[in-house]
Write a protein that binds this DNA or RNA. Structure first.
Lengths: 238, 238
DNA sequence: TGTTTTATATGATATAAATCAGATATTCTA
DNA sequence: TAGAATATCTGATTTATATCATATAAAACA
């Protein structure tokens, strides 16, 4: 497989520093680099579909990807918003199962595809790397347990407040004491993260705005009072 | 460490056949066997607490254990009911994190404890075993995604119907065309699995009974019409 | 065995959130 | 740039489910 001119070598990729591949030895980075394929994706494109067979992993160099499940009522439950440095699809590969979720581009993205056998052999060649991947899988389980517990035991208001804080942590840009969530998400997508109806998100955001917790700048949300949001998000805090 | 007289060697353990350890080579089984410790636990005892440091893994030989998270409102969200052959605590170990959940005995149990280093070195000695464990972790992520999606997108009635069918699969005893869920769970615990209030479970069970979907025999539930329950559990099925 | 405690059951009520409906605003595209 | 399509917003209404209250049944206990 030949590299496309825009196919930055992994050795030079700035996003790699944030990824599971961050401290892979140079020779392994090169092997992966030689076999990877960088593809540009536009908003709305599907990266893979739930139920299909994984053929490799995706490394996000830039952009935002939503990982979601389509419920039987047709709504999308967003599991995770992935950004630069995030690796997608390795759980399905290691689980030797078809994809348990779908993924779609939320903000134009450049994503490298690494074929299955290249990834798997890099794992086996490097026990420390294998261990980091396993660690990441294990961590993910804990995260999911937390999400499940929040979903069943907290109100939509609490969950929305929590999601806003998380989005602030991942996509926040500081400015004037406030934090702007610098990512283009539709209200429907926010609803998909929280696990609620679009109208509920819209209504609660208006309410948060009225209570001076947030500010709305077009589709983007600015967090004005994170302490209050934190209090709102948890029964006991504060 | 000396084995207690009741400490059946793993080589002879019938529960091992159902576990991740099922096709471990004999010498490795013996190593584990020499270092494990069988302990009997009574209903209500805690196996480990969320937030504490894992020191090894637990292999369930008999009995039932609930794995749960305590929400900020004090309610227990049950993540999983573990039974013979199930291994607990390896995700925390491999994630190098404290336990993300707690576990408590639901039905008197005999459980072997295998110290961390014995388990970890058996993984490293046996790549195929390591791979099976990784596969299991990956699978668990998919299961959790499904649970999260159900929790946010389905009604309590649908989720309860689904939980009853699952319990039937795991703990069902066939008889007279019906399936008896042969496990002692309180209504509160069923509520903890579904992620709802105890009263809602009681009410819906009465309703299911009235509709001839189930029968109540003390605390135990008998599934009379699984097709109807399946239809009830999913928007599209049927 | 009787007494206390805990679990189950059922009714009444409150409420959060979904759904339905319509208005305005924004984005797309021809 | 006008018109169509889509997204956001707000209101009205419905509904599922939590909560509160109380009764009965079962289990634990002394």
């Amino acid at each position: 497989m030949t590299n496309h001119p825009t196919n930055t070598p992994c050795a030079l990729c700035t996003s790699r520093k944030f990824s599971l591949f961050s401290d892979l030895p140079e020779n392994q980075v090169c092997t992966i680099s030689d076999h990877k394929n960088l593809i540009s994706h536009r908003k709305g494109q599907i990266l893979y579909y739930e139920g299909t067979k994984p053929l490799g992993i995706f490394c996000i160099k830039s952009g935002v990807v939503k990982v979601y499940k389509t419920a039987s009522n047709g709504k999308e439950q967003i599991i995770h918003l992935a950004q630069k440095g995030d690796i997608l699809g390795y759980a399905a590969l290691l689980g030797e199962e078809n994809y348990s979720n779908s993924s779609k581009i939320v903000e134009d993205a450049r994503i490298c595809f690494v074929p299955k056998d290249v990834f798997i052999s890099s794992l086996h060649q490097n026990p420390a790397f294998y261990q980091r991947v396993t660690k990441s899988l294990s961590h993910e389980i804990g995260v999911m347990e937390e999400k499940l517990t929040n979903a069943t035991q907290k109100s939509i208001r609490e969950r929305l407040a929590y999601v806003l804080l998380q989005l602030g942590n991942s996509y926040g840009v500081e400015g004037g004491g406030n934090q702007k969530i610098d990512i283009m998400l539709s209200r429907e997508e926010i609803a998909g993260i929280v696990g609620t109806a679009t109208e509920s998100v819209i209504r609660l955001l208006s309410e948060f705005k009225k209570d001076n917790l947030i500010e709305l700048e077009g589709k983007k949300i600015i967090l004005k009072d994170r302490r209050a949001l934190a209090r709102l998000s948890d029964f006991y805090a504060g």
